[in-house]
Design a protein around this nucleic acid. Sequence first.
DNA 1: AGGTGTATAGGTAGAAGTACCTATGCGATT
DNA 2: AATCGCATAGGTACTTCTACCTATACACCT
Lengths: 216, 216
Amino acid sequence: MGEVTKVLIADDHELIRKGLRQVLKLDNNFEIDEAIDGKEALEKVRNATPDVTILDIQMPFYTGFEVAERIHNESIQTSVIFLTMHREEQLFNRAMDIGVMGFVLKENTVSEITRCIETVLAGKHYLSPEISEFLVRRNMKLMSNASEKTGLSLLTTTEKKVLKQLATMKTSQEIADYYGVSIKTVQNHRSNICTKLGISGHHALLKFALEHAKNI
Amino acid sequence: MGEVTKVLIADDHELIRKGLRQVLKLDNNFEIDEAIDGKEALEKVRNATPDVTILDIQMPFYTGFEVAERIHNESIQTSVIFLTMHREEQLFNRAMDIGVMGFVLKENTVSEITRCIETVLAGKHYLSPEISEFLVRRNMKLMSNASEKTGLSLLTTTEKKVLKQLATMKTSQEIADYYGVSIKTVQNHRSNICTKLGISGHHALLKFALEHAKNI
DNA sequence: AGGTGTATAGGTAGAAGTACCTATGCGATT
DNA sequence: AATCGCATAGGTACTTCTACCTATACACCT
């Protein structure tokens, strides 16, 4: 095709820039530009708006993160790929939050970067398989809606039972009937729970119950 | 190490079974067994409990899914890897729900399956990068807590504003003050929202607001 | 011109929840 | 034996929410 894909490679190691250029030169018709630090990368992204921006994380002036963050905030239309040695979960999570489309480990095969670019150009995410574990975990956390130790440990078993029933949208009366106790007992439990958790207000307890029911 | 890893290959294509056996034979000390359909696979998993179970999806008697589902339900200690030609999202989602640890596309390099086995043996997930898009989307859905058309579209802008404030744990009075209207107005909006959404009860509206605040 | 939808506001009755008390019985700890 | 935590239950006063109504004013569409 006559279509040329503009790729910006931002990495402070010349070796990597040259290597990447070599790899990309073979396969497709890429128009390649380079940046040697975060500052230059940001300038070139703003001016040339490459289709794909490959960012190293550690760079002078701005880190790859800061560059990606600005790209994200300024809604610049370029697909960002992180090329990194770091297999750290926090990094990955932050990356996902700022709309990074690709996350490739340097230690992996060179073929991966071309696959990544192709995938990203198709509008899809590409993650090195080693990374997918993080995404799975991220998923799990979302599913179990943050199992932070919010103060659940402060509650007695009966209080937790009440909380669990609360999350099923039962009223105090219904919970009382369910357990065969007085509504006053349930109300007292509710009060005590609120006190223990340091929350107050009409909705606070229900909100808490809904958020933490899965962890009870 | 003297430790031998037991691997079960379940695929109805002999070619693939032999190919896999070849690939695995080279690298590590695997003890390989084969199954030619879902029924045999399940029997061998139950009796021999391999460390890793590689399942094709389309197989006679039981599909790979059905086998994995039974493995999951019976809490059999084996890491399941799906080896498939299908890049379909539903398949993937179902797989994640039944605890599959690996998901590798047949079209990919053979080296990927060994990487996958190693990763899975380390207790981590391995997904072919082409698949990660699905996981990302799964994530998104969880994050925006199901942006199903729950009925939000039925609401007027004012009603949505009220809902949004509700999710911040404001009472009707506080919302009224916030917008400088009567509490009755807010209460009416609440009533109308409940009617439109077809919900009732003390907690229902707050629950709805909390769940959908992000989409408003 | 008339209908429809929306935002506004009010009324009333009742249900539900909150806040802050007291009090009893039981089992475990000291 | 005395104390403490917990589950139980009750009282009282207050706030909040719900479920029904009515009603006015405005904008938009036919």
